[in-house]
Design a protein around this nucleic acid. Structure first.
Lengths: 233, 233
DNA sequence: ATTACTAGTTTACGAGTAA
DNA sequence: TTTACTCGTAAACTAGTAA
């Protein structure tokens, strides 16, 4: 027998419901077809058709099939089911502490690139942050109030980057904090604040790393305002 | 053939990953067993076992099986996959009820004061907004992207302010939306966006009212950047 | 207890096709 | 073009069992 109880939406069907919602059926009605849907979900039109039928049976969507497709509206039950899922994910990602810093983009002194691109660090970034950062840092000069708040970073759980030695010199350990960046009209979720581990001087700026060149993806120039939401690792 | 491509987590597996995360594997490591997991997921222990194996193959979890169960930790890839899901659901539930506009403070033409201070409006502000606004409005010129989003305001629940007539003339109805204002380092929660009810022209700026003179409490001058988070009433 | 293999069964899939 | 049926097949399931 199948595991899920009768009348309960299974994971595949829920994924379809989410897709429909994202594509516009969340508020109001939205036109699609089984072949369209099958393509985005990477299943056959037959499967798409069957899943829509089942979502309708479960009372999660209302349908109006016409000659060239169908109009779909998500019911209150459907919205409720999606909201339950939303709540689960919020529990995962919103429970930690968050510290909001504000400041202006400033030109770094080029050191960032030198350090970040060292293989000894790069390897750890890939393993512990989940990506290889763009070889360079974005420097943000903090406002006075943010300078105060910056001290709170040490209370967050950090991702530790170990120091190492080369023939020439020693590279010290560092710590990273997950950060969400909010520019005027764009938002970016995959960045990290990075700072030397044992330094509490010069707290008037922070350095950011990310898989992308932040100046490009956020369309930033020197002096642009940026809000940085730092969270627990 | 099955629909999903090799190497891609399917909906069932993702549901297991979420379950593991919620049960404690999200930060650090967490002990469970196939029978435990099978029970909460309403599948057999065999299926639970297989799904865990597959999540491990996909690199989404690390496992350490011991005599009486197994220790599970979600990998960075796993967290990333969950975060992608979280982002989807946020788009569904935070977009509709929350519209973020950005712009720069601009000098109004003094009309705001004239209208807002009319007793016929003031009485309603006190009753329906819970305060008597400062007699004047703060005008915010929107960025291009925010002009686009501004249209979404009409999908929010508004507070209606009725029109009325005096001996001289007619004052039309208006609508208000609760708004949170975010200046560089100060935040203000008690403001409202106000606009004439039946006007969809000139969407390049918004007007704000609040119990206080916003230019004072937020230390704003013409041209200063301001973020306006508009929510449902 | 566990995990996970093998075997047999059920379910879900895509192809073909009718309306 | 659509949606949704039937049908043969492949995948995923549960039961039984070994380690």
């Amino acid at each position: 027998m199948r595991g899920t109880a009768r009348g309960v939406v299974d994971a595949d069907e829920l994924a379809v419901l989410k897709r429909l919602a994202l594509d516009g059926g969340f508020k109001g009605t939205h036109k699609t077809s089984c072949s369209d849907l099958g393509e985005t979900l990477e299943v056959s039109t037959q499967t798409a058709s069957r899943r829509l039928q089942r979502l309708e049976e479960l009372g999660l969507i209302d349908r109006d099939t016409v000659a060239d497709g169908q109009w779909i509206a998500i019911t209150d039950d459907g919205r409720q089911r999606l909201h339950a899922e939303y709540t689960d994910y919020r529990r995962l990602f919103e429970q930690g502490t968050r510290i909001e810093l504000a400041g202006a983009v400033e030109s770094g002194m080029g050191e960032g690139k030198h350090y970040v691109s060292r293989p000894g660090y790069m390897r750890q970034f890939r393993d512990r942050l989940g990506y290889e950062p763009f070889p360079g840092t974005l420097n943000v000069g903090l406002t006075e109030a943010s300078e105060q708040r910056r001290g709170g970073l040490s209370s967050l759980d950090a991702i530790r980057i170990d120091g190492f030695e080369t023939a020439d010199r020693t590279f010290g350990p560092a710590v990273c904090y997950p950060a969400q960046l909010i520019a005027t009209d764009v938002q970016y979720d995959q960045a990290h604040v990075i700072e030397p581990e044992r330094t509490h001087h010069a707290a008037d700026s922070i350095e950011l790393i990310a898989p992308d060149r932040l100046r490009d993806v956020l369309a930033l120039a020197d002096g642009d305002q940026l809000r940085v939401v730092v969270t627990d690792a």
